[in-house]
Design a protein around this nucleic acid. Sequence first.
DNA 1: TTAAGTTAGTTTATCCGCACAACAAACATT
DNA 2: AATGTTTGTTGTGCGGATAAACTAACTTAA
Lengths: 381, 381
Amino acid sequence: MTIADQNLVKKMNRRRLLQEVIHHSPISRASLSKTTGLNKSTVSAQIQGLVDEKFIFEIGQGQSSGGRRPVMLMFNKQAGYAIGVDIGVDDLTVLLTDLDGSIVSEHYFELEQSSVNETMALLLKTIEQVIRTMPGSPYGLIGIGICVPGLVNRSEQIVLTPNTHWNGVDVKKQVEEAFNVPVTIENEANAGAYGEHIYGAAKAFDDFMYVSISTGIGVGLVLNNELYRGVHGFSGEMGHMTIDFNGPKCNCGNRGCWELYASEKAFRQSLPADWDEKELNKRFQQNDVVLFRSLENFGHHLGIGLVNIANTFDPEAIILRNPLIESNPFVLNAVKNTLSSRMNVRFETECAFLPSTLGKNAPALGACSMMIESFIKGITA
Amino acid sequence: MTIADQNLVKKMNRRRLLQEVIHHSPISRASLSKTTGLNKSTVSAQIQGLVDEKFIFEIGQGQSSGGRRPVMLMFNKQAGYAIGVDIGVDDLTVLLTDLDGSIVSEHYFELEQSSVNETMALLLKTIEQVIRTMPGSPYGLIGIGICVPGLVNRSEQIVLTPNTHWNGVDVKKQVEEAFNVPVTIENEANAGAYGEHIYGAAKAFDDFMYVSISTGIGVGLVLNNELYRGVHGFSGEMGHMTIDFNGPKCNCGNRGCWELYASEKAFRQSLPADWDEKELNKRFQQNDVVLFRSLENFGHHLGIGLVNIANTFDPEAIILRNPLIESNPFVLNAVKNTLSSRMNVRFETECAFLPSTLGKNAPALGACSMMIESFIKGITA
DNA sequence: TTAAGTTAGTTTATCCGCACAACAAACATT
DNA sequence: AATGTTTGTTGTGCGGATAAACTAACTTAA
């Protein structure tokens, strides 16, 4: 708990005003005074400072409402830029966004059997290039957010990546030293949750879960408008929640883990072995019965775990991140069938189950928004 | 987000100082200045106000450390009193505590087949009596916290009590009107969690779960030092978490719910039907093999769900509230065996599994501490 | 026993940020 | 052209915190 003095007061009001401008620009000083409750003179003084520091600029006069025309203020979303990186199991995403989270440039790579060192080199090279082509701005690159498919501890060290070999690689240090800007390492599910929270399907929600379904299942928890990371940073490992205690052994040590039944990997293993990606697409188009039975089964097992999540957290929504779900409403319907048969009625109407709207970009965008948020916080520190 | 002015500054510092005195009394003004970072003159001024309002008093001079002897300040824990009520399925607890949570008087009743109306009458009568015998104090009764074995929504209305008939009974209104003090209605698991947090096994933890095991299983979540209630107030319904998706139907609508395997009810159903309470105690004393196999099984199934909780939240600790567990380390050992075979190693050493220390009183004490906390907050509003 | 040093708490002066009110600027209405 | 409204600025005062000087009370050691 920090102690309070006039300086704190000023910082709090400054932050409040900046937030108001960010989320409601264009807006006038008079409107700011009304919405915040701060006196007009206070607003004017604070805004002056933010204008001097290039975070806000005057865009010109607005519409009169019967008197002097207001001077409209805009958040200068080009005051700086953020880079968001998603290191996937077999792909790499690098996004550059402005302070509004709008994508300025994007780079995608397939990582077929790349070593960690190769990927790292590719990453550093790409970031370097992105920085070179970045538009000029008062604050330049404000930070790099990087997410990885594994467990990240509270010191932002990668401690477990089941499907890759990033364990123990000090990505934070390497990238920080290369570019000399703030760097954050984050779990992929947490970053995705944050992305959907700020820019995507969960904008309206204060309390929701983001379920990332790929090789495994990871869950990002947003509670009271904040990411909940757990004591060591390992929360949301619900892929290893037992849903069948006599089920098969998982390599995590547990039995009958959810992701053994409801991950995309599990779904693919449920298909005939001789189906390749092409065959799969063909049957998709043809509404093939065998395929759709597998999809339904996938949705069913997903639903079982989602009921557990809903019972645990009582959230406003659960966001599902998976290409199959985003592209085809059939799976989500199968999920919802299981939900309606298994979930207590009181929840069913109250908790929304939605596909991700940012899709593949969710984690990298989330990583960007984390950097932006900490930059904005830093402005008022 | 509220705006900031000098008044906020004063309130924040006042609250901070009062908290410091509450948790570290006896303490001098000089120490307060050091620990809070506030100027000596600020501390003196604020303390004067709190002394005037009877929340703090001077207890006399302390030990000199080489200079003038300090005047020691004490929190006046007898400035008021709180009542905590635990309405159980078949019992009723009414506690009176001072502002420190120390029990001043306690009343326990068995409710054998009492109707809701009868219980309500008993409750009101008991509270009346407690108030009559309460010591004199500047602020008197500061509030009544009541917890019930069921779901309580955000408007503090009881919406579901599986094993009793309190649904829809407006306990809050009735008790408020009878005694004209603040009243809170809370879920039993939440109240218990709060109790253990403030006074019991979880004092040292900011992030933990409290698992209440009786007829069903309820979980209270404390995250970042605060109760997490969920959007509608229904979080922690982990008794209805599926741990065996092909398992038997539960009356909640789901299948293979945890509490079908690991509640005390489930444990008792696993015993031979002709064993009564006396027989049970006898066999307990004799270390009866059949009984202990059942206990082991009970612990095993508990462990399965606890692993799920640990994977979900990554907490500092999980507190188990059940008489069998508190009285006999055997069950907890059985739990831990399952944990060590099923939980990822990284967690095992990091998450503590502890029996409740407040036992039966945990929920009522938690209810008290909620009222005390809101009273203290109100002091600085 | 006395002088010097240390710690506790109060008093006084000063600073800082906000609110308030008066004012100036720029517009709409009639 | 006169009146009223809205926007934004300027000067004044208030409240609360800090800092420094001061008083008070004690320890230590010559």
